[in-house]
Structure formats: structure tokens, C-alpha cells
């Protein structure tokens, strides 16, 4: 009899989580951020329900500042699998002229956190799959797989339900919803290995290529379109870069890299000196910031 290796065990656990939600919740949705974790989630969801189609739509929160390649990839994926895709943007934020460089930390709150809440409320989803992993950040290490949010979408770290064995209590009180993290026990390296072994398509931005970038606060920001304000001193260079995480392009730092395929990315990862969140502008304020964000409803 064959013994399962650890990636197979992780995959089996994730499938189990997907199925449990479908069996116990009324209206689930999958948050599709178009990133690598989302790509893995999507792949596993398809396995979990094959030969049926996964019985839930995809939801993407578009800030209006997503990389163009992400949008193209998103649409191609939805089309390829004929998967219902919902896209939501916080129109109030757009009307108020909220831009990545105008509102500081409030930007991500308005265009991502608020937008997500709006979308979940609008459609009445009672469970949302997210690609969060416990290895991402210290406060995530204590996150449950089934993480409850109050009607106001707040997370109460003091009042989490114990999770034992593989038994998940999905019973909700009125107004509550659940964020479910099927990849809780995966690490960044696991995700890359799985992508490699399963040949999962990912946004090309993860692979190195000459791209136009400017230096901002010590980070390399890609000039993805002409909305990025360029000062007199800004010098656009074309450098071989890739991204470790993806978000709004003006806030996402690129890494100098020549890793043009996944094995090369894995090799770089194994020798890198910086954690995944290093490139994310959103997380830069203090080591407890992620936790604060989650209490406020950031995914």
C-alpha cells in the first residue's frame, strides 16, 4: 500500500475542508485574489468536487489598481473553467478619489477590506474560502480553519471555537459568516512545490522578466500603466524582476530576479533572506499590524 507524502496529506486535508463547507453551509463563495494561493485553492476545489463543478462562484475584489496581467489571467481562468466570476469594486471609494498614494493605510481598508464586506453583504454569502496560511504571519499561527466573523465582519481572537481533529463546527448564529482557510497548514514552499508538481497555471508576474520599474521607498514598483505619478527624479528602468506576492501594483514591491520558471523560483526561495510579506506595502506598519487588520475584517 502506498503511503501518502506530505503534499498529498495537505491536499487531502484541503479537499476535506472544501467538502465540509459545501455540506454544511448555504451560500459559499471563493475569494479569488488571482495570486498563487488562489490558483492552488482553485485547483484543489476542482479536485474536491470532480466530476461535478465546484458549487460556488469566484469573487474578486478589484481595487482598480490591480496589475493588468492579473485581470487578464482572472478572466481567462473563469472562462476556461466556465466558473461564475463576481467582481466587486468599492465604487464609493473610487468616487471619493481614493488612490494608493492618497490615503496611506486607509487605502487598503477602503478598497480591499470595505469592498470585501460590501460584496459579501450584497450577495449574502455565509462562507468565504480564502487562501490564508498560518505560516504567513505570527498572528495567523493561531487562526482557525473555520474562522467566524460577526455580522460586522469582526474577528474576535479571544473568542474562537476550539478545532479538534478534523471536526469543524460550521454552525452559525444569525448574521455571522465564516472565513474558511483550506490552505491553513501549507507553507509558501509547499505552495510552490505543489504548483510545480501539479503544473498549475499562475500569473506570469511571479516569474522573472524585464519589466519597467521605479524605485520608491527602497522598493521596486512596476510601472504597469500611465496612472502611476512619476516625479522629475523618477527614473524608469527596465529590470529583470518578479513578484513574490501580488496586490495593487503601486504598493507591491518587485524582487530583482532571473528566475524565469518555477524550479528557479523555488531555488531562489530556498536561498532568499526575506519573508514573503516583505514586498507588501500593506503590512509594513509594526509586527502586530496584521492582527489589527484582521480584527477589523481584512481577510
Amino acid at each position: 500500500m502506498s503511503k501518502l507524502d506530505y503534499l498529498q496529506r495537505l491536499e487531502a486535508e484541503s479537499i476535506h475542508i472544501f467538502r465540509e463547507v459545501i455540506a454544511e453551509c448555504e451560500k459559499p463563495v471563493m475569494l479569488y485574489s488571482v495570486g498563487k494561493d488562489s490558483s492552488v485553492m482553485l485547483h484543489i476545489a476542482r479536485k474536491a468536487f470532480a466530476p461535478a463543478k465546484p458549487p460556488f462562484p469566484l469573487l474578486q475584489i478589484a481595487s482598480g489598481w490591480d496589475f493588468r496581467e492579473m485581470i487578464a489571467f482572472r478572466d481567462a481562468v473563469a472562462k476556461k473553467y466556465q466558473w461564475e466570476l463576481l467582481v466587486h469594486t468599492n465604487e464609493e471609494g473610487v468616487r471619493a478619489g481614493v488612490k494608493p498614494w492618497t490615503h496611506g493605510a486607509a487605502y487598503s481598508d477602503i478598497m480591499l477590506t470595505q469592498a470585501l464586506r460590501q460584496a459579501l453583504d450584497k450577495h449574502g454569502f455565509d462562507a468565504a474560502f480564502g487562501g490564508g496560511r498560518r505560516d504567513e504571519e505570527k498572528s495567523r499561527a493561531k487562526e482557525r480553519v473555520f474562522s467566524f466573523r460577526s455580522a460586522q465582519h469582526r474577528w474576535d481572537p479571544k473568542n474562537q471555537r476550539p478545532e479538534l481533529w478534523s471536526l469543524y463546527n460550521a454552525r452559525k448564529n444569525r448574521g455571522e459568516s465564516i472565513r474558511v482557510f483550506p490552505l491553513s497548514n501549507w507553507t509558501e514552499l509547499d505552495v510552490w512545490q505543489y504548483i510545480h508538481l501539479q503544473k498549475i497555471p499562475i500569473v506570469p508576474l511571479y516569474l522573472a522578466k524585464p519589466r519597467p520599474v521605479v524605485k520608491r521607498d527602497g522598493r521596486l514598483i512596476m510601472v504597469d500603466d500611465d496612472r502611476l505619478p512619476l516625479g522629475a527624479g523618477d527614473r524608469v528602468q527596465t529590470l529583470s524582476v518578479r513578484f513574490r506576492t501580488l496586490g495593487c501594483y503601486p504598493l507591491t514591491g518587485a524582487t530583482l530576479s532571473t528566475a524565469a520558471d518555477i524550479p528557479a523560483v523555488i531555488r531562489e526561495m530556498l536561498s532568499t533572506k526575506y519573508s514573503e510579506r516583505e514586498g507588501r506595502g500593506v503590512d509594513k506598519d509594526g509586527s502586530a499590524s496584521m492582527e489589527k487588520k484582521k480584527q477589523e475584517g481584512y481577510f
Binding site: 507524502d5 512545490q193 510545480h196 524550479p263 528557479a264
Partner: peptide
Amino acid sequence: ASDIEEYIERNQRKDL
């Protein structure tokens, strides 16, 4: 590069 495929192969077979 050749090592990396081997590394992945080896790494994958690990148990948990």
C-alpha cells in the same frame, strides 16, 4: 538548476 528538480523530488517524498 539540475539540483533543484532533484531537491523537489526528494523533498516531496518526505513524510509529515
